[in-house]
Simulated scan of single mutants.
Amino acid sequence: MPSILTRDNVEIHYKDWGPKDGPVVILSHGWPLNADSWDRQAMFLADAGYRVIAHDRRGHGRSSQPWDGNDMDHYADDLAQLIQALDLHEVSLFGFSTGGGEITRYVGRHGTGRVAKLGLISAVPPLMLKTDANPGGLPIEVFDGIRAGSLADRSKLYQDIASGPFFGFNRPGATPSQGMIDAFWFQGMTGGHKNTFDSIKAFSETDFTEDLKKFDRPTLIVHGDDDQIVPIDAAGRASKRLVPHAELKVYEGGPHGITDTHADRLNHDMLAFLQS
């Protein structure tokens, strides 16, 4: 994988698929995963003529594991440096889960001068944490539990998340895919322990409300209504209220990991949005 070096000397690895003269799509992954989690979308869109770039966030996958800077501001600035280093323009940014926070904070900090379209897929904005101003969020105890699990046995934590709520395999009648479970676990374990631990705070406690208000490009929001990780009411539907021009697509019965469980439907929805 090629890479860039950020201003604070962090190596960010990225994939660059498809025709180099095609319209550019950047895919930002979720926690604790890496760019490989987007492979089904990346291959589909590259085959359709798009130049698809998917990076490993700092501390995840094949990128460097810095002790500091595991927060949304650094994630967004890393993305900006990747876009600048490759001299990309008219980019369509899609973020899944934590990646949705990354691209949203990118807009908040760097604007939309290089952006054509925006996509939030099972994304964490506007705010996951329950507060007085955000009563529909999840209590801090949920995230404290994830942190405790990470410190105690993060390998087991990743197995439990993947075999349970992430893909909806804990629902009655569900047929678990061992391949999806193993891929989630493997990607998570390639990330740095400190980095993925710090990222829990980043994705759960960052308030993206003001960033979303700066969305002035065509926007697609896709969310499953059975998302047990990032509940739709506090996320997809709340983001729609802050970005009124956005198109919200609700996947009935869809879990959090729709990039895998609903890959074909999502691929075609993303392509239709890009072509619209």
Rank of each mutant, 00 (worst) to 15 (best):
W38V: 10
G149N: 12
G192Q: 04
D260N: 15
A235W: 01
L88T: 07
D68I: 12
I200Y: 08
L212I: 06
Q178Y: 13
L266Y: 01
P125L: 04
L274K: 01
D233R: 12
N9F: 11
E90T: 11
D153Y: 10
A80R: 14
V10D: 00
I161S: 03
G188R: 03
G119C: 06
A133D: 13
F186K: 15
I200R: 07
R171W: 05
M72G: 01
R58V: 06
L5E: 14
Q178P: 09
L274D: 00
D36A: 13
P231K: 08
R109V: 04
L79F: 12
D8F: 09
D216G: 02
V10Q: 04
D160A: 11
H193I: 13
Q228W: 10
F273H: 07
V142I: 12
N9G: 04
Q84C: 14
N267H: 01
I4S: 03
T261G: 09
H55F: 15
S97L: 01
Y251S: 06
V124Q: 08
A152E: 13
R154T: 05
I83C: 06
K15L: 14
A152L: 14
D269K: 08
T98Q: 15
R62P: 00
A35V: 07
K249T: 13
G224E: 00
R40K: 15
A162S: 08
L242A: 08
G137W: 05
L27Y: 05
T6F: 00
M72A: 08
A174D: 11
D132S: 13
V250I: 14
D198P: 02
G22D: 06
